[in-house]
Simulated assay, not measured.
Amino acid sequence: MDLNERLTQDMKAALKAGPSGKVRLETIRFLRAAVKNAEIEKQAPLSDDEILGIITKQVKQLRDSIADFQRSNRQDLIERAQAEIDVLSGYLPEQLSADEVRDLARQVIAQVGAQGPKDMGKVMGPLMAQTKGRADGKLVQQIVKELLG
């Protein structure tokens, strides 16, 4: 079953769950609308990788929103955003730990022969390709900076 079919099935299940599935239903509906808009823009169905890209983008936006909500002291909005992240995270591949990202970064640094901070661009491209959808870009960047000095 592809990701689009899975979203449809999960939305139906959330509908049947009634009030207990409200956040899940609204989150999946919002995600399906974003996927549909991207399909209209592309004028073709999206692949699972493209849908994962949309999910990753939405999770990043929600995490950024949580930081704003914390500054505004809005616990209700923080909890709502976290619940949406939890729903969306269920569709993402298992996330890499910081140690796993660090190991991958070391491998890429060795492959490209990076010597210092000026070579960060050489490392980030291949490393982001390897960690796409499985690690937060900020974490990857932070680890590469740390390793390159």
Rank of each mutant, 00 (worst) to 15 (best):
I66P: 01
K60H: 14
N73H: 07
S65C: 02
F69L: 01
T131P: 13
K16E: 09
A33Q: 02
A17N: 11
A129Q: 06
K42P: 01
A14K: 07
D64M: 06
P19S: 07
P45F: 13
V140P: 03
V108S: 00
D48P: 13
L88K: 05
G121W: 03
D48V: 01
M120A: 12
S89D: 14
A81R: 00
I143E: 00
A129N: 05
A44D: 02
D10T: 02
T56K: 03
R32Q: 15
A98S: 14
A44P: 03
Q95P: 03
L52D: 09
Q107T: 10
Q95G: 04
Q111D: 15
D76I: 00
S47V: 05
V23L: 02
M124R: 00
E39G: 11
F69D: 00
A33C: 02
R24M: 15
D48E: 08
I85G: 01
L3Q: 14
L62M: 10
N73R: 00
K57V: 13
T56G: 10
D64E: 02
A114M: 13
G90T: 10
L139E: 11
G125F: 09
F30K: 14
L46Y: 11
K12T: 10
Q70D: 05
D86V: 13
A13K: 09
T8K: 15
V144I: 10
D10C: 11
I66E: 05
K145D: 07
Q82Y: 01
V112P: 14
E5F: 09
V123S: 13
V144W: 06
I40M: 12
D86F: 15
D86R: 11
Q82V: 02
L62F: 08
V87A: 12
P126G: 12
Q142K: 03
V35E: 13
L3G: 12
T27G: 07
G53M: 08
M124N: 05
E39P: 12
R80A: 12
G149L: 06
Q58C: 02
M11N: 06
R71T: 15
A17K: 09
A81Q: 03
S72E: 07
M120K: 14
M120G: 06
T56Y: 03
N37S: 04
Q70Y: 03
L46W: 11
V112R: 11
V59T: 12
R29C: 13
Q115L: 10
L15M: 10
M1P: 14
G21Y: 08
D49M: 06
M124G: 03
I40W: 05
A98T: 11
P126Y: 08
A114F: 14
K132Y: 01
L15G: 10
E50L: 04
Q82N: 05
A81S: 09
G116H: 14
A38W: 08
I78R: 01
A67K: 10
S89Q: 07
D68E: 13
L88N: 07
R6I: 00
N4Y: 07
R74E: 01
T27L: 07
L31F: 09
T8C: 08
A33N: 06
V87I: 15
D99S: 15
L77H: 02
G116S: 14
L77Q: 05
A14L: 01
V101Y: 06
A67S: 13
D99V: 15
A129R: 05
I40V: 12
M120E: 09
P126L: 04
S72K: 11
D10P: 02
L88V: 04
G116T: 13
A98Q: 15
A33K: 02
D68K: 11
R74D: 01
A34F: 07
R63A: 14
S72N: 05
